[in-house]
Design a protein around this nucleic acid. Structure first.
Lengths: 246, 246
DNA sequence: AAAGTGTATATTGTCAACAATATATCGAAT
DNA sequence: ATTCGATATATTGTTGACAATATACACTTT
């Protein structure tokens, strides 16, 4: 009997379909399964998730509010397209928020958490050594996530995560140069040193600068890509255009 | 014929019902027509707006993402309840974002915009002189809105506005003491001076401190209210409780 | 009177259907 | 061959309906 009861409890959904669809759609956008500008066909998505259009639309309204999805009246929902200028602005915000988080951490972080950050930095070194840019990217995200969780500041956490999510709308630059990774991880080291020293103002400055340096690295990587694209002028552009349905 | 065409265009809705309902609900929450904790009956709201439950639910999902509304499975939507700790965190975020905005303004603001800010400060002086706390509150909001618009930074604008909206979930302290209003406006003056001087770092610090000073004033006003409530212990509390349906 | 129990009502979460609008397809004209 | 226009299809925005769940109410028991 006890088992039946627990089964019944387990079977009873603890989440609305909207919440499930929303999480999955968000994931698909953030990891790039859905690309900026893609049209989101309600029926197709509903069918894919095994639900009706209602929950899908509700989920998309939430994602619209999170700036991940845009809408045109009578044309439906699209994965938001984001301009380089908007990306640059997001870096601005991330910088001030991350500065705040780091300053706060300097006076509150535990020895265990510091050790975990050190370990994460070591792992990133390994990724750099093996030239695994994708893995470095993943670890870097995890490092930042660790810090914002440790800061124990819900509002900052939420704001920062939302900004990170938005920035994923830009195509990921998987081709991370080793030199840039080294630079980035060196900044991590200096930041953690400041945290260990309990120097809030230094931590704020380093956190802030780390994000802005990330923007410089992003811009450099975009410039490089553009240069490569320019060296193969007519053919590549046309081929790319046909893929996107607009 | 031209008239018919323009009529047809005017008649054709330029917005979805969801967007209209969302704006109206947001307004009702922010101005306090709907109070924190209030249950949002879908049918009643749909009837009130002359639409069906679909658009109402979509609007609420968006507001949920904006942190204005919360949801409990099978119990529906509620105006979000916000704790003093959460309010305090929002002030933290507002402070760093407003600091950023002010720093940016220092190097970009036009003479006209500066004149408009001066005028707004004068108006606030008038409100203080007449002891009109509500009007001061309104003008203060408008002053901040002016500055964030001038900053011409979409991301900061959106982040800041969202934080302001959230903070409206806390019951407004209409009983603003004249001394606090004077203090607040003096901070406005110093800030605008820094903007005129083009001193970005000073502007950042003053913008930051102005928000944090606002938090101190808010806390003081809460403490005062609590003291008043404590002096009338049993009766008032019970009467208030019956009004709220839970 | 208070607490518990069972029934009726209300409300939500989800779905399916419909009208309005947009997109795609096809043929005719230049 | 392209452009234009008319028709057919697809998709959206919105509505009303239905089952599952929660709330309110009357009734019994202590």
């Amino acid at each position: 009997m006890t088992e039946n009861v627990s089964d019944a409890i387990a079977l009873r959904r603890a989440e609305s379909l909207t919440a499930i669809v929303q999480r999955e759609l968000e994931r698909m956008i953030v990891v790039g399964e859905l690309r900026a500008g893609d049209r989101l066909n309600e029926q197709a998505l509903a069918q894919r998730f095994g639900v009706s259009r209602g929950p899908v639309r509700e989920a998309m309204r939430a994602l619209e509010c999170a700036n991940l999805v845009s809408t045109r009246l009578n044309q439906g929902f699209f994965v938001r397209e984001i301009s380089p200028e908007e990306i640059a602005e997001i870096y601005d915000m991330r910088a001030v928020v991350y500065g705040f988080i780091c300053a706060r951490l300097a006076t509150t972080i535990s020895a265990e958490a510091l050790a975990a950050l050190d370990a994460a930095i070591e792992e990133m070194d390994t990724a750099i050594a093996t030239g695994d840019g994708k893995e470095y990217y993943r670890l870097n995200l995890a490092f930042h996530e660790q810090t914002i969780v440790c800061a124990a500041h819900n509002c900052a956490q939420q704001t920062y995560r939302s900004l990170i999510n938005e920035s994923h709308l830009a195509r990921q630059r998987s081709l991370v140069e080793p030199e840039r990774m080294r630079e980035s991880n060196a900044e991590h080291r200096r930041l953690v040193e400041a945290l260990k020293a309990g120097d809030a103002e230094l931590a704020r400055e380093l956190g802030n600068k780390h994000v802005l340096a990330g923007r410089r690295r992003w811009k450099a990587s975009v410039a490089e890509e553009d240069a490569i694209a320019a060296s193969v002028p007519p053919h590549g552009a046309a081929a790319g255009a046909t893929l996107v349905h607009k």
